[in-house]
Design a protein around this nucleic acid. Structure first.
Lengths: 127, 127
DNA sequence: CCGGATCCTTATGGATACTG
DNA sequence: CAGTATCCATAAGGATCCGG
């Protein structure tokens, strides 16, 4: 992730390398379609599990729970269980989660801005 | 991607829905680990295939070519083949590619900034 | 309503070998 | 050196069921 020169093997690089590998791990966790779409869907508001499933279209029950667990584990979303019957579980972005969301926003905006460019690039490539 | 109300089925929504599904497709393409790491690695400079493989650590030959083709098809990278022997192929971010890179930069920065928070969140979760 | 577990089918991705 | 193709193990992901 960080430039290659960090990997020269000097003694004091030890914790830098450790940080780097941790960063890679986290990056691999969040740099996936569903995680990013969930973060984007949560936006500013709190959503229940079933609302999220409607909001993030195409996501399966399994992928949703799986990614929510991962995001919760990494401290990006907060999971609040209301002990009612039927149960009510709400998901909210934490502060770091909201910070990351702004980056996801940029990507979404970028996508819409470049639809035209991408479509024509595809046309050229496929020819 | 865009809010659900766009899907109400009114006639004039037709091309909005089309744009939306195209955006989803593009998003699915680029929202993956290797694509983002390649974009980040390309940064401002031009790199050869073999340099990229060294730079993006852990990427296999197959994943690299596969993602490079995809990025080229979507007009994010430019592929320049020098007809020498041995061949020399250079990859460069296009203007849209560089625009997206700034968003990827933000994600990378975010990751390093929140290493501590994430580590302790994991500690709590795993307990 | 939420979530875990199971089964089962695809898709992903690595290793390898071969071409220009 | 760069790219394609093939083979193959394993992981991802959908469907379904049951339990709290």
């Amino acid at each position: 992730m960080v430039t290659k020169q960090l990997l020269k093997g000097l003694p004091e690089d030890a914790d830098l390398r450790r940080a780097d590998s941790l960063a890679r791990e986290i990056f691999s966790d969040i740099a996936n379609k569903w995680a990013l779409l969930i973060i984007e869907a949560l936006g500013e508001r709190t959503l229940r599990f079933s609302e999220l499933r409607d909001e993030v279209e195409g996501v399966s029950h399994k992928m949703l729970t799986q990614n929510l667990r991962m995001l919760e584990r990494n401290g990006l979303v907060d999971r609040k269980v209301h002990p009612t019957v039927p149960p009510r579980v709400e998901y909210t972005l934490t502060e770091p989660g909201r910070a990351l969301r702004t980056a996801v926003d940029v990507i979404c905006g970028w996508t819409y801005q470049h639809l035209g460019h991408i479509e024509s690039a595809r046309g050229r490539f496929d020819a």
